[in-house]
Simulated scan of single mutants.
Amino acid sequence: MKPFLILQLRPERAVSDNEYEAILAKGGLEAQETIRVCLDHETLPDGLSLSDVAGVIVGGGPGCVSDPPESKDPVEARIEATILGLMPEITAHDIPFMGCCYGIGILGHHLGAPVGQDKYGEPVGPVLCEQTPDAEEDPLLKGLPQRFHALVGHKEAVEALPEGCVSLLSSAPCPFQMIRYGANVYATQFHPEADAEVFDFRIKAYGHKGYFAPHEVESILDACRMADVSVSGEVLRRFVARYRTGSDPAGDSAADQAQFRAEG
Rank of each mutant, 00 (worst) to 15 (best):
E122V: 05
P123H: 12
V124F: 10
P126G: 11
V127F: 13
V127D: 13
T132Q: 12
P133K: 01
P133W: 01
D134E: 15
E136L: 14
E137T: 12
D138N: 15
L141N: 03
K142S: 12
K142L: 11
G143T: 09
R147D: 08
R147Y: 06
H149N: 12
V152K: 07
H154T: 03
K155L: 13
E156N: 06
E156F: 05
E156Q: 11
V158G: 03
A160T: 09
A160P: 08
A160I: 05
A160S: 14
L161P: 01
P162E: 01
P162H: 01
E163Y: 04
G164M: 07
C165W: 02
V166A: 00
V166F: 00
L168M: 00
L168R: 00
L169I: 01
L169Q: 01
S170L: 08
P173E: 09
P175R: 10
P175Y: 12
F176S: 08
Q177V: 03
Q177T: 04
Q177A: 08
M178D: 01
R180W: 01
Y181E: 10
V185C: 12
A187Q: 06
T188D: 11
H191Y: 03
H191P: 04
H191F: 04
P192W: 11
P192G: 11
E193Q: 10
A194W: 12
V198M: 14
F201G: 04
F201P: 04
R202A: 11
K209W: 13
Y211F: 15
Y211H: 13
F212I: 09
F212V: 11
P214G: 06
P214M: 06
E216D: 06
E218H: 13
S219H: 14
S219T: 13
I220W: 12
I220K: 14
I220P: 10
L221H: 10
D222V: 11
D222A: 15
